[in-house]
Design a binder for these strands. Structure first.
Lengths: 120, 120
DNA sequence: GTGAAGTGCAACCGATGGTTGCGCTTTGAG
DNA sequence: CTCAAAGCGCAACCATCGGTTGCACTTCAC
């Protein structure tokens, strides 16, 4: 109930650079630290660190190939992360809806009181 | 297209402690740094810093009352944040769906080739 | 074999989430 | 009125993290 979330997954997805990396890996169907860094405003080493975080979170898999290390998105795990994002959103959405309904009821009650004052 | 997001909003909502604070403020209908810190595993000062971040992001409003400073959630702004979360989720969801469809098509194509080999 | 490509490791820097300690105003009980 | 406690802000400090630079190591290609 209290938005208890797999914190590793959320924080992995929480960083803006890592989100862009996931975007690139998805649209390109994989990549290496070097190819990613060419399309991002950070150095290869920064990208490598992020890939480590994503790997530990299970969001990507790595395949060594000669002197390269190719990374690909783990779609099932990313789907889990998406589900958790939606869950948080849904929780807050529900509460905001409840608040909105209560506010409307209060306003309606006040309107009733002003329209038909039965007592002095 | 490229998941361009209001980074202040996202990062404000990105911290797990701040998410719990928003939960508490929503369910209690507001609170102070002290009352929040009593229900969280961090000190009042840490809570105060987070309230500053949430305030700068426009997610909460503060009302000084005597020696207290009461904070309440700005529902419209939180709704915006929720919308952005959903947007990121929807983007990835769409891409994952596309990948899934492509994978299925490839599998179907291969099945066709194996079933009816027209040429040698 | 040699140079370039790709990677990893280590040191360093700035921002941030967290703590402790202190001092200030406000409140309320005596 | 007095004074202790409640609530808050400010400042110093620490660990972690995202980012950088620099260097050494493998692998590929000529």
């Amino acid at each position: 109930m209290s938005t208890a979330i797999d914190d590793d997954l959320w924080s992995a997805v929480g960083d803006p650079t890592r989100r862009r990396m996931l975007d690139l890996l998805l649209s390109d169907g994989g990549g290496t630290a070097t190819t990613l860094s060419e399309r991002l405003p950070v150095t290869r080493q920064a990208v490598a660190k992020h890939l480590g975080v994503l790997d530990r979170a299970g969001l990507v898999h790595v395949t060594p190939a000669g002197r390269e290390r190719r990374y690909e998105v783990d779609e099932a795990q990313l789907a889990r992360a998406v589900a958790q994002l939606s869950a948080v959103g849904a929780t807050w959405d529900a509460r905001l809806q409840r608040i909105k309904r209560i506010a409307e009821r209060i306003q309606r009650d006040r309107a009733d009181r002003e329209a038909g004052p039965e007592k002095s």
